[in-house]
């Protein structure tokens, strides 16, 4: 299982905080996972196609080309606005 978290405006627009994805022990690229998630419905397609989407794997910022595997924590979120 890969645990997928969504934060802030993205979490609200998807109406989803956490999503569990089965990966059958395979190594996947974040872009593959995004494609799967985008196919769920129109709003997910729209929100997860934004060019400013940020991604973290196991709490480290990574590019969308990064790999994920079973047990990883993947997170998607909009540009950060702290400080």
């Amino acid at each position: 299982m890969i645990k997928i978290l969504f934060f802030a405006a993205l979490r609200e627009r998807l109406d989803c905080e956490q999503y569990l994805l089965s990966c059958d022990g395979k190594m996947l690229q974040v872009t593959d996972i995004l494609q799967q998630l985008q196919s769920r419905c129109h709003s997910w397609q729209q929100e997860l196609s934004r060019s400013d989407l940020l991604c973290a794997v196991n709490q480290q910022l990574v590019p969308l080309s990064a790999n994920v595997q079973d047990g990883d924590e993947l997170a998607f979120f909009p540009p950060v606005t702290g400080g």
């Binding site: 934060f7 997170a75 909009p78 950060v80 606005t81 702290g82």
Partner: peptide, 10 residues
């Protein structure tokens, strides 16, 4: 911090 820390203001 303003570009890398995962914090969001509403």
């Amino acid at each position: 911090l303003k570009n890398r820390a995962p914090l969001w203001k509403k």
